[in-house]
């Protein structure tokens, strides 16, 4: 009984941690620009696929991971420079549609370069699962949780202790005022895209040994990450983490205790319920209409 519960919990937390990382990426860009970046899932894919193809070329694992993350970072900057920045006068909705276009474009390129097959990535450490009270925990899950936690702590420090982090926060609160005190808001926006690409690619790399990776892995994981961000309240860092974890756990519990057929239904009903009663999400900022 306990073993069963723990098993579902482990499954849920692992996948939930991934959702949380993706949700954080959405949150970052949303804060800096009010754009929902639907290419977020593609960063995830780039991370996983680049690592797999580099290791296949004989590059040592650690170097491959670093290179893949850098590649994703460059891609994030390029996305902002060449797709978002030229349209900066446009409506937010237009920008969101641009990110959808960009995601289809990136996916297309990945399909041509890497093909359409699924690829395997080795576990970071042992393949032997760990047994806890009768439930089994994949060693890779610990990596996902550990790296997730480090990234979250790192982000908190970045935003509260560094000048650049504070500049991003300032821009998200009031763009005009930030510009008046000398913050280069375009630069901040570019940074936000870069950091969220880095986050996404790291998430993509740590989960790849569990989920496999392919050119289209970003679609569904990106969507789930967005759901997590919406549950938590778009724009809230705590919300992204809580939203991601709870979405993952609810999904796993539903699959285990009710029926796997209703798993997605339960997850999506959850977002409906949350949004009915708390339209800004669990931790969303209160909006005061200025007259």
């Amino acid at each position: 009984m306990l073993a069963e519960f723990l098993q579902y919990l482990f499954t849920g937390i692992t996948i939930g941690a991934t959702y949380a990382l993706i949700a954080l990426g959405f949150t970052l860009i949303y804060n800096a620009s009010h754009v929902i970046n639907f290419a977020q899932g593609e960063f995830l894919m780039i991370g996983g696929m680049a690592t797999v193809s580099l290791t296949a070329m004989g590059v040592p694992m650690i170097l491959a991971v670093v290179l893949a993350v850098i590649l994703a970072g460059i891609l994030g900057v390029a996305l902002q420079r060449f797709a978002i920045a030229p349209a900066k006068q446009a409506d937010v909705v237009t920008l969101i549609i641009i990110t959808i276009g960009a995601s289809i474009f990136i996916r297309g390129i990945a399909q041509v370069v890497w093909g359409k097959e699924y690829h395997v990535m080795q576990n970071f450490s042992t393949d032997q699962p760990i047994e806890v009270f009768g439930a089994v925990l994949n060693s890779q899950s610990l990596w996902v949780l550990g790296i997730g936690a480090i990234l979250v702590v790192g982000l908190v420090l970045f935003f509260t202790k560094t000048l650049i982090g504070k500049a991003i926060l300032a821009t998200s609160m009031n763009k005009e005022a930030a510009r008046l005190v000398g913050i280069r808001t375009q630069m901040v926006l570019m940074l936000a895209f870069m950091v969220s690409a880095l986050l996404g690619s790291v998430a993509g790399i740590v989960v790849a040994p569990i989920t496999f990776t392919s050119y289209d892995i970003g679609i569904i994981l990106g969507l789930k990450g967005f759901v997590a961000a919406a549950i938590g309240g778009l724009g809230s860092g705590v919300g992204a983490v809580v939203g991601g974890l709870s979405l993952g756990i609810v999904e796993a519990m539903a699959a285990g205790y009710i029926s796997s057929d209703y798993k997605d239904a339960v997850a999506f009903s959850m977002i409906l319920l949350v949004l009915f009663f708390m339209p800004r999400g669990l931790f969303g900022a209160k909006v005061v209409e200025r007259v």
Binding site: Q7, F10, T11, I15, V207, I210, M253, G256, S260, D261
Partner: peptide, 20 residues
């Protein structure tokens, strides 16, 4: 008799169900 959807990335929960 359990199922999973094509986009699922972890079937441990369903398999635990079968095992039990």
């Amino acid at each position: 008799d359990v199922t999973y959807s094509g986009s699922d990335t972890d079937m441990t929960a369903q398999l635990t169900n079968i095992r039990n």
